[in-house]
Design a protein around this nucleic acid. Sequence first.
DNA 1: TCTGGGGTCCTAGGACCC
DNA 2: TCTGGGGTCCTAGGACCC
Length: 339
Amino acid sequence: MLIHADADAFFVSVEVRDDPHLRGRPVVVGPQVVACASYEARALGVHAGMPLRHALRRWPELVVAEFRGETYESVSADLMALFREVTPLVEPGSMEEAFLDVSALDGGSVDEAGRIAADLRRRVRRELGLPVSAGVARAKLFAKLASRRAKPDGLVVVDADTEARVRPRLPVADLWGVGPMTAGKLHDAGIVHVADLCGWTVEALVERRIAKPQAKNLVAIRDGTDDATVKLPGPRKSVSSTISLGRPTRQRSRVRESLQHNVIRALDRLGDDPRPATRVDVHLRFDDGATLVSQGALEEPTRDPATLVGVALAALERTAYEDDGRGIVVAGVALALPA
DNA sequence: TCTGGGGTCCTAGGACCC
DNA sequence: TCTGGGGTCCTAGGACCC
């Protein structure tokens, strides 16, 4: 069986843990938009992604906690380490969530897997002071749906009968990996629920412009043979830094300055990782919402800041970014890393 | 009310080589 | 000289996730 363990309102929970008088209050964590909101804040209507200023104007009672990126990274490392004490088969999904394969421990019993998950939740609460919700099921999809259902601070166990009953009724738009684009294409094809996939082949879905891996996944979900494999994480493939420029700008010097800063910050974020960058990508976002990536090839892998900045600036120049009248609102770089 | 920042994976087209 | 087929690398862009 698999457990999907997911820390509730992670950033805020860390802040509440470290400053107990925040407990029970409508707390949000910035910096400029709401990165995370406590359940009390969500009850008011606050949600992630909302500009902080708007949220504060509407709900002056909100408490804003400082965003402490490095702290979250380190608590996340502790959380994953704790998961790995339960089983080495841990696949992190993000800073605050992971799939755990406990098949070797549960003797094939959902109930036993449920007990392991309950125990895990207690341990995280005791040792890290954080609320974690968990879902237990045969495969990833239902484990993830179950943990979502379990929030906040709960546990949901999905047995085979429940899974079989619920599966056909799942809206495809709710499936993990199906976003607005894919959902739209599926709806156009008359596919709204998993049951509607009956009769569809992978090829037929690909003809409707569904990406092949996506199509395979959908057919597997319909057939109940969807992914139950926990993949161990490899080394990360890129490290990036992007910073909002505030007001839209067309000043070359401001964008160049930001890229320089971002190169330094990305190198800094590399931390102990000794690998050199193999490419520098420049990311821009314009005030009409469009984004652009310009790749900067390196003659050889390097971590030399001056070289990386030079290549980033050259990549910027190739974009003709200042010629079309739009302003730039976000600039950033991503350093590609060798495997 | 489309805003932050950090990631992964997939596809398509062109260049180049055999 | 022309045509076909296959592989790999590079770049750009899209979709999705938290």
